[in-house]
Design a binder for these strands. Structure first.
Lengths: 227, 227
DNA sequence: TCAGGGCTACTAGTATTCAAGTTTGCGGGT
DNA sequence: ACCCGCAAACTTGAATACTAGTAGCCCTGA
């Protein structure tokens, strides 16, 4: 008899479950930025005690998704343009090097798997969540091919900030262009051209946020007031 | 009437204080890797309740410094060669790009500050902790000059694994060579040569761990058995 | 009407208690 | 002497109780 909203039961610790759930809700925009949430409120919602919720909040705060104000409350951070571009910087640095490594020596089966993912992406139409999932799979596959699972953890940690923006641009996601960019990365890898792979990845990750200013203009209430 | 070992009082939350303290103790090798520690034990030691200690343990686990085994105990992770090189990979990717940015457009006063730090480093003799502190200041200054404080947070998170090794090589720290590498980075920046700055940084960060295998051979009990 | 002060309701931080699972060691039986 | 099994003493996970501090509201007084 767990709970009504998501689902928690005796399969694994509660803290991480709450974290994942809250993280998804924030990144996907189900919780409006600026909303004030409280530990007790969330605890009631999931029908657990404050303890696991606190753990989740810590990690969310580390990820920059919420802001804890002692004795005052916790609120969902608005998207900071600065924060998003900073996240992109880190991600670009890491993934450019990963692409380089893969191009130098691709693990067997890598190119096939990447090509398959790209095809699936080309077939997606309109479903932003599905596309983002496939996009994540593409990048994750590259990281695995380079045998850099730890680096991928860092990327994941940072990626959330970028995905928040991408969920906002649901209808405007230029999937065509993104798929082409993935193709460019794959082509460079197949050509065993590390420099090309690296720069294709950089171009891709910069392009992902090309419409950031436009989105910030359209939904200003989701964004931190400019500094 | 706080406590005997470190010091905690009514200035800030206890959790972060415990985290910092434990982190330092682990990174500097004061707690032997493989040691089993328990929340209650540490709580008694700091004369606080288990709650803040738990928070600290979470973050230490995230940083890969401890391993929490439910219902069994928590133990200080041994140094994993794989983990250290993975950390270096991430750090190299980020800091190479930072060095590139700084070389493209150094903030005013940057080169002077870097030169000053290098001089201080050259003067250090034998004191590993002091040298590591100055080394950190050098890299931190670069990050600030590139206006990448967020990226620096990631670097810090990852740096711990590398510093553990460096603390072990107290006497063998080739400070001369490291200072020279810093000079190379600075020279590239002063020459406004982004490519040179980037590759000098990469070379530096790879060199830092050149004696890693040797150290692992000398103090095998600090290291994870090879996979 | 407006300004000031105190009270109340709510927040997160901390401490304490309870629960569930694992390890360890002792003791009896073979 | 050895092995099996049970029980007690740990461990962390979760829930509850308590503390301290903030903010906002209402009431009072001018």
């Amino acid at each position: 008899m767990p709970l009504q909203p998501g689902l928690n039961l005796s399969e694994g610790a509660l803290g991480p479950q709450v974290y994942k759930h809250m993280r998804d809700r924030i990144i996907s925009g189900q919780i409006t930025p600026g909303t004030r949430i409280s530990e007790t409120e969330i605890a009631r919602h999931y029908e657990v005690s404050r303890q696991p919720v606190r753990e989740a909040f810590f990690r969310l705060a580390d990820a920059g998704l919420v802001q804890v104000l002692p004795q005052r409350g916790t609120l969902v951070r608005r998207i900071s343009i600065r924060g998003v571009t900073d996240a992109r910087f880190v991600r670009e640095a890491i993934e450019a090097d990963i692409a380089r490594l893969v191009a130098e020596d691709p693990a067997p089966g890598t190119t096939e798997r990447l090509a398959d993912l790209i095809e699936q992406q080309a077939g997606v139409d309109g479903d932003a969540a599905a596309f983002i999932r496939l996009d994540e799979a593409f990048h994750h596959t590259l990281a695995q091919a380079a045998d850099k699972t730890f680096a991928w953890r860092i990327v994941e940690e940072v990626k959330g900030q970028m995905d928040r923006v991408r969920f906002l641009s649901t209808r405007y996601l230029p999937t065509e262009r993104l798929v082409d960019q993935h193709r460019a990365v794959l082509a460079a890898i197949e050509a065993r051209d590390p420099d090309a792979a690296s720069s294709a990845m950089r171009q891709h990750l910069r392009g992902v946020l090309s419409d950031l200013p436009e989105i910030a203009r359209q939904v200003p209430e989701f964004f931190e007031p400019e500094g």
